[in-house]
Every structure is written in C-alpha cells, then in structure tokens.
Write a protein that binds this DNA or RNA. Structure first.
Lengths: 218, 218, 218, 218
DNA sequence: TATGAATGAGTGTTCATTCAT
DNA sequence: AATGAATGAACACTCATTCAT
C-alpha cells in the first residue's frame, strides 16, 4: 500500500500501459483477436481490467496498438542492420538470416499478422506510422538490389517487393506451420539441426534467385 | 438462432451433413475457430442448429472434420496432377503452378491451416487419414526430384521436404498476407497482373533452386 | 440419439410398452422428472423414441404411468401378505418387515414418490386407480389394529393413518437419505449388519407404540 | 433473461451473495437441481445472472453452497436448544418438537436433502464443514441418552444414531410426502389439527421407544 | 407399427464493457 | 489513478417433441 504511494503517478501510468501491452501481445498471439480474453490479459499483466479500457478504449483498439508496435519493432530492427555498409551479396545474406532469426525469436509477430489478415487488415489500415516505416523498409531492399547490380553480383530486373515477399515467405511459412508441418512431414521441424538446415536452404534459395551465375559456379 | 427458412429439400442425412460442412468451412475460414459462430453456420447452411451437434458433436469436432476434409481435398488434387507422366522439369513447374492456383482458388485452406496452427495442431493430430495422404504427397515430390536428377535436369541433394515447404511458402505467404501486404508494400497484390507476375516469380525461384545451370543459361 | 439396434420385433405393441415403462422407471428414479432424458429412456430400452410419444403422449404422461404402476405394485404386494390370517402382533411385525424390505429392494419407489411430491402430486391426483388401491391399504391396517385391540394385544386409540405413516417413515427416511446419512452419521448405513440392526429398531419402535405393556414387560 | 429491474441497492458484494443464495435456495427447493433454472434465480433475486457465476462458479457449486448453508442452519439451531440444561425426558421431547417444527417451517431443507440424495450426496461429500457440525449434533443426542439413563428415565442401549434417524424420519416422511400422502390417505395432512395430532403422535412414539416403562404407566 | 431426420424454444455459461467509489 | 462490483448481449449446447416415410 505504502510502496504504491511512493511511486510517482506519471511513472506508474507509463509502466501500467507497458504491462498491459506486454500481456496483451502474449494473449493475442496465443489466441487470436477473437480468442483472446480481456480478463486473461488483466490477470496475466496484474492490471486492473478497468485500466485497459482507460488507456486503450477497447479490446480492438488494444489489438491495434499491439500490432502497430509489433510492426514498428521489426522495421526498427531491420534498419539497425546497416545493410548499406556491407557488400551487396553479404548484405542480402544478412537480411535473409535476420528475417529467419527474427521470426524464430518473435513468434508472436507471425501470429499477430495472421490474425490481422483474418480481419482483412482493418486495424493496420488505420495506422499511419506503419506506412512510413514500411516505405523505408522497401526502399532499403530496393537500394540493396540496385547496388548489387552495380557491383555486378546481382541479376538485373529482380523486383524488390517480390523478393521481400519471398524472403519472408520461406521463413514465415516454415515457422507459422510448425505444428501442422510437423504432422504432415512427420518431422520435428523445430529441433536445432532442422532449424539450421532450413536457414541454409533459405539463404541458398534467395541467393540463387538474385545473384548472377558466376556467384554460384564456384 | 435457427434458420427460419430451413427447408429440408430432401430428408437426407448425407446432404445435411454436407451442407453443414460447407457452411462451417466458410465460417471457420472467415473467422477462425474462436471467432466462428455456430448460429451463423446454421443460418448460412439453412440447417437446424441441433443437427450440427447431432452429426458432429461439438464446434471443435466440426472444425476438425472441416480441416480434415480440406487437407484431403488438396492432397487428392495433387495426386490427380499425374506428375510422373511428365518430364521432370515440366512436372515441377506444374506443381508450383498448381500450388499457387489452389491457394488462390481455395483461400479457406490457408486460413483453416493458420487457425489450426494457432491451436497447435491439436485437431490434426487426432486424424489418421491425414498422415496417410501426407506421406503419399511427400513421396510424390521425392520421386519427382529423383527422376529429375536421373534425367540430368535437377541438381543432386535437394531435400524434398524443404522444397515442398518453399513451394508452399512463397505462394502461401503472398496470399495469406494479402491484406497486410497490400498496405506494407503499397500495392494491390491481388489484381490480375500482380498475380501473374507473382506466379512467374515463384516458378523462377523454384526452378533456379532445383535445376542444373544449363537449364537456366538460355 | 435413437437406439441403432432397435429390432422391430414382430409388431409387439405390448412388449414395447413394457420395455418403455421399465426403462422410464429406471431413468425417472435415477434422475427425477426434470433430470430424466427421453433420449436415454429410448436408448436404454432399445426403443425408438417416437414410440414413447406414440404410446404415452408426453414425458409427463409417461411419468404418470410409471408412478401409477409403482403405487399399484406396492399396494398389490401388501395385499398378498394376507395379514388377516396371522395373529395381530405377528401381522404388525410382518407389515413393518415387509415395508422395510420392499423399500430396500425397490429403491425406485422412494425416488419416484419424492419426485412426485416435488411436483405437488399433480400426476397422482389424476389417477383414480390409486385412490381405490390406497383405500384398501388403509382399511387393511385399520382392520389389523382393531383386531389387535380385540385380541387384547394392541392399545386402544392408535390412529391407523398415523401408524402407517410412521411405519413407512422410519424405513423411508433411512433409505432415501442413505447417501447424506452416511456422511452425517459417519457410518455406512447400507452394509448388511447396519440394515439388520435398523430393521430390528424399526420393529421395536412400532411394537412399543402399538402394543399393550404386557407385550413388552417380558 | 436477466432481472430487468435489478437495482443494486448498495454496491455490496456480501449482500449480493446473500440474495443469490436466498433465491437459489428457494428455486432449488421448488424444482430440484435439474429442474431449477439459473434464469429464475437471477430474476427472483433481482441479481444479474453473471454475478451468480462470478461468485459461485456454476449451478452445481451454487447448489452445494445452498445445501451446505441449509445443513449449517439446522445444526446451529439444534445447538441453541441447550438440551443439556433440561431434564433428559423434557430435553428429548423438546428435540422431537423442534425437529418437527423446523421441518415444518423450513420445507426447503427437506427438498434440498432429497435432491442431494438423488445425486448420491456428491456435493455434501465435498464439504468439510458439514462433517464438523454433524459430529457435534450426534454427540449432543448421545450425551442426552446417556444422561437420561443416569437419571433413570431412559432405557439402556438405545443407539443415538438410530434414534436420530427415527426422530427425523417420522417427521420428515409426513412432511415430504404431504402431497402424495394427502391423496393416499384421503386427508388434508397439513391443516392445523392434523399437524398438532401428528406432533403428539411423534412425541409419543419416541418417548415410548426411549423411556423406561414407569415413565409411561401413568 | 415403426423409424430416423428434423425442429425451436430454451439452458447453463461467457464475454467485453461500464458503474460507483 | 485505480479498483471491485455489476451488467446485458451473446454463446455453445440441450431438450422434448414432431415430421415424413
């Protein structure tokens, strides 16, 4: 009781919001938007349920915020790769590597995006921030491709959007379908060896698609 | 609420079950397992809600059946491709093409699989039929790869499971993320030209990964 | 669900009705009127559910018939005791004994009567047969008491209705409350020794109430 | 349906729980566990249905609590009789009197116990409180019997449990079967004179069973 | 006489959200 | 700022009963 009063209100408010967002991210990722329970979010985050409505208005708005933050996180991480400071081929490899690792370590991202697509991206549409960071991301890959061509290591005419989708897709599908995949392919897709093998396969797939032949005849 | 205008065209148990499954597939695909409403399934299928429980026991069991049938459908369609009667390179191209088209024309399949993965594949685990048809599917691609190597058109050492996942992934990701993707990439991913371009990109990606160089020097 | 293996015996209406009544008695006794399930009656009796409605009209009417038969059964059994052919004291003892044994061997009777009282005897009220057999029963005890007085073994002025109620009550309560009683009294009320002890206690209670002192000074 | 005119007089959790318990007791007593309707409990108690689940979890758990309280109530009332401060014979008479009056004025108790026995006492088994108060009750009668023997007014060797069951039984049966009984015996068992007569009969029955003859030769 | 399919009103339970303090 | 009580609409699921053959 006394301890609570000792904490400044402003700091408390911010902390509460963070705790809500964290708990909400987890619950939305685990259960989807429809399956998520506000009660569970409150309980897990040790927050009074009323605070959720105080700070975020509704379950849907909370979902939107969670989603927004998730997108901002990955886009921020991508920018931090500083791909423009590496030779093009290495940079591309690093991007494929990063995408794989990020999805692997942040499985909520995938589930949240799936949920959002189930809802036809109505929440994402409302966010302007997303559009800004997304554009920067596409530009980054576009720059990389152009530089690779200039360096003579990449083929001409590879569309950066299509490439982005492929880089994401070959990682995303493997990981989002980890459960059904393990049944269909009768393999544990998630053990260490399997994961390493997949990353190698993904890198090879992308490099073969993008690089000029001389980069592969070796 | 029950469907007020439920007209039992024929007093036909089989037909009723089919109507339930059809309506359920649609609703589960649209809303996920948690978001789907049994009432809606009954109304849309013009079925008395009671019949759903009579024939399928519960919402979850109904979901399981829908999912099972969805897997059986795609696996059956794949077998009908008769890939073994085509030259290996053509056969592979046909498989990539088919996968793309199937996902495009049966978007429910993707959403159902996403839902099932959200639930950690608990429903699929219970199905034995799935395991049988899945094995046959993996063997089909394995045979194809081996034949391609024998024919001298495919590289050695490409893992059929990894290839399958890539073929699926580059199509699946594009289509499951159609809504968020259209925002992130500021493009309508679903217009005719975009779809055609993507299919071409996918075929090229897979062929470059699998075929020997001579098949690409042209 | 209907009984799948319902065998259409040679159009045996009487047998079907008996099977329905037997299954219904069991179910009503087990679960009460509200808790009983028509489906269960049909399944257990291997009868088509529709037949229940054909022969008995409704669940309530079926209950009424079951109850009626239960009352007729006990009253018939009582008449068969031929108490008038025994010395009064012996006859009374026999009646107490019989009541105990009957309740013990026909636990459904007690539960059915409890259910009927929960429903304020609306079903019993409709039955004229019950009134006839009941009157005969009360007369039987009345005759016995009068004879006992004449024989000099029973006290004067014992009301036959009150006596009947006590004879029934001390047996009925013990047995209807077998489950709660076993907890409250921390004793297994239903093992062989306990049952024998109770019967003895009951006989003594009734004889002490009815007989003249000389019958007890021994 | 929720109670439309639910007016939260005071925003008081304890009061709400009491109102729920009161309404539930009435409904369970009137209709049994299976026949009782949660909607009716909510409406009659002017409580929001949701609160029932919030405080008690489920219909069955609510029933358990109602039953538990009913047992505690009667056991508490019995202790308040202070039988140990009266001569043994008077105390016994008072107990018989009390039991009759209690059942008469609290008819729900009987119906609840009947319902619980229909369910084989599964709810009562879970309650530890019941065992404590029950033991105290049995001890009370045991003490009374022993004291009566010492005072020279009671016979030796009367089992307190058997006696308890008889005291309860002769009252319980009369009252639980008030409706069927009125038909079978063609008498209104519930008018004032009938009730008084029955109480007298019960007292006499028990005293004759317990007391030494000298107490009855007068 | 007998049956399996079908029905609609209802039944316990859950949920996101708001009120009062 | 924070909380626990309260709400009403909706939800999955069940039931006694009737229809069509």
């Amino acid at each position: 009781m006394n301890a609570k009063n000792a904490v400044p209100r402003t700091r408390n408010a911010e902390d509460t919001q963070k705790r809500i967002l964290k708990a909400a991210k987890r619950e939305f990722a685990r259960c989807g938007l429809a399956g998520a329970r506000v009660d569970v979010i409150a309980e897990r985050g040790k927050i009074n349920k009323r605070m959720i409505y105080h700070y975020f208005g509704s379950k849907r708005e909370l979902f939107q915020r969670v989603l927004e933050e998730a997108y901002i996180d990955i886009r921020t991480a991508e920018q931090k790769l500083n791909l423009d400071q590496l030779p093009a081929r290495e940079a591309l490899e690093k991007l494929v590597h990063f995408t794989w690792e990020y999805y692997l370590k942040n499985p909520e991202f995938i589930t949240l995006v799936n949920s959002e697509n189930l809802h036809k991206a109505v929440h994402l549409k409302k966010s302007t921030t997303i559009k800004v960071v997304s554009r920067r991301f596409v530009e980054m890959v576009d720059d990389l491709l152009k530089r690779g061509v200039k360096e003579g290591v990449f083929r001409r005419g590879v569309d950066p959007v299509q490439l982005n989708i492929s880089i994401a897709g070959i990682a995303y599908y493997y990981l989002t379908n980890r459960y059904t995949g393990s049944i269909v392919f009768e393999r544990n897709l998630m053990d260490k060896a399997a994961l390493e093998e997949r990353l190698k396969f993904n890198i090879e797939t992308i490099l073969r698609m993008v690089c000029v032949e001389s980069q592969w005849s070796s």
